[in-house]
Computed example of a mutant assay.
Amino acid sequence: MPAFPDDTGDLARRLVRVPEGSPAAVVAARLLDLITSGELAAGTRLPPERQLATTLEVGRSAVREALTALEVLGVVDVRPGSGTYLRGSLSELLPQTLSWGMLIGRRSTTELIEVRGALEIYSARLAAERMPEDAVARLGAHLARMRASADDPPAFVDADLAFHHELAASVDNTVLLDLLQIIRSLLRVWADRAVEDPTEISRAVEEHAAVHDAIAARDGDRAASAMAAHMLTAGRRLAATVAADTA
Rank of each mutant, 00 (worst) to 15 (best):
S149L: 09
T55M: 13
S91M: 06
R107Y: 07
A66G: 08
D33G: 15
L126W: 00
D172Y: 04
G140K: 01
D10F: 13
T54H: 09
E111Y: 12
A243D: 15
V58Y: 04
V171N: 02
A128H: 01
S91L: 03
A118P: 01
G81C: 10
R193I: 03
L161T: 09
E206Q: 14
L177V: 13
D219K: 05
A141T: 10
S61Q: 14
V16L: 09
I104F: 05
A234E: 05
T36N: 03
R13W: 03
A209D: 11
D192M: 13
E166A: 08
L98Y: 09
D33C: 05
L112Q: 02
R125E: 15
V16K: 11
T8V: 09
G105K: 05
S123M: 10
L90P: 00
G105H: 06
A42F: 08
S185P: 07
L98K: 02
D151N: 15
A124P: 06
G21F: 07
A229Y: 02
V115D: 02
I215C: 01
I104D: 00
A150I: 06
L90M: 07
L143C: 03
T36S: 09
V27W: 02
R188L: 13
M131E: 04
P48C: 10
I182W: 03
G88I: 03
D134Q: 13
E92C: 02
R13N: 11
R218H: 12
L46Q: 08
G59K: 11
P154M: 07
H164W: 10
A29N: 06
S89A: 15
